[in-house]
Design a protein around this nucleic acid. Sequence first.
DNA 1: AAGGCTCTAGGTCAATCGTCCTAAATAAAT
DNA 2: ATTTATTTAGGACGATTGACCTAGAGCCTT
Lengths: 193, 193
Amino acid sequence: MVATTTRQQIVEAADKRFYERGFEATSFADIAAVVGLSRGNFYYHFKTKDEILEAVIAHRLSKTRAMLDAWEVEGKTPTDRIRSFINILIMNQAKIMAHGCPVGTLCNELAKLDHVAKNRAAELFTLFRNWLSRQFRDIGHDTGADEFAMHILMRSQGVAALATAFRDEAFVRREVEDMCQWLTAQQPTSSPK
Amino acid sequence: MVATTTRQQIVEAADKRFYERGFEATSFADIAAVVGLSRGNFYYHFKTKDEILEAVIAHRLSKTRAMLDAWEVEGKTPTDRIRSFINILIMNQAKIMAHGCPVGTLCNELAKLDHVAKNRAAELFTLFRNWLSRQFRDIGHDTGADEFAMHILMRSQGVAALATAFRDEAFVRREVEDMCQWLTAQQPTSSPK
DNA sequence: AAGGCTCTAGGTCAATCGTCCTAAATAAAT
DNA sequence: ATTTATTTAGGACGATTGACCTAGAGCCTT
């Protein structure tokens, strides 16, 4: 079906606003205005704001899974797939410079609020982490694959954070290049220089 | 004088709450309760919330400057000084796992809100950046010192972000160790392995 | 003692928040 | 065509927000 349900529209609008403005800073009226819905009617679809948050996180999880799966099927090497991940920083550069990493900033906000869904949001990180782990294992790293995954994830978060603060495109390009070089150096088959 | 002024008390309480809960999530009443002041009286010391934010940022800037200056005077090498910076991740591990990096999370929040003070908050990053740059220059890196500084800053932000999401002490220790090794490898005087 | 200054308490203000209710419009099922 | 279920609009709720005002307490100077 092409027609999106009202519920889907709400989730997508909330997703966008949560990313651009933050969870707490986004109000019911805010989302309703985007969807073109009356504020009161909101309660029919979602009883609480936390319920919307849960729906948004679930939506992001499935979107992310779909993206990672799509990278998997192509006839590329695990190293190329990891490069696809790193390249998100280039692809979404403008958005990241304006609002940071969607995953990192949400986890940070929920951690500060000590929100019940903070661990749920961290599952987004776990998704990337496990996927990256698998790629490194497929490369041939029987041990330390998870450490490599966390290292890549860590660098991405760092680049996103500073990209937001300094809005320096050259910095992002440089660090992405450096990450790719690091990745190449981790190939166990090729002999190091 | 030992006695702190009411204004100082407000700034320090706001600083703490902004870090632990976030800027928007912290209310006047919130800070007033900590200081033991009536809400109404607040207006005497600070006319707007943005004014408090400015005072908090200024306070953090001077605190940070003092810390960096203190590291400078000791009879240590620039490399040791950079190691002191990296070690913040270990020293403040518990706080970082609970509320993230004070600088990074504030900059992210203000960027999302498109707040007027977002560039002012980024000066905290610039402070660290310039200080790190100077250390790398003192080591002997006439060129690329700023790139090295940004790289260290980037890694710190990445570690802080994932530390908050995963609350994994082993990860933090491992990445700090890796950063120190990277730092050692950047010594231009010592020959690389 | 009188005056002026700093600081405080308490209250009001309009606006907005998340939540909730009800009546009506619309669609689906019989 | 009549009933039933789904979806909607609009308003109201108590609470809280940042902002603002005023009367007066406390303290210093004269």
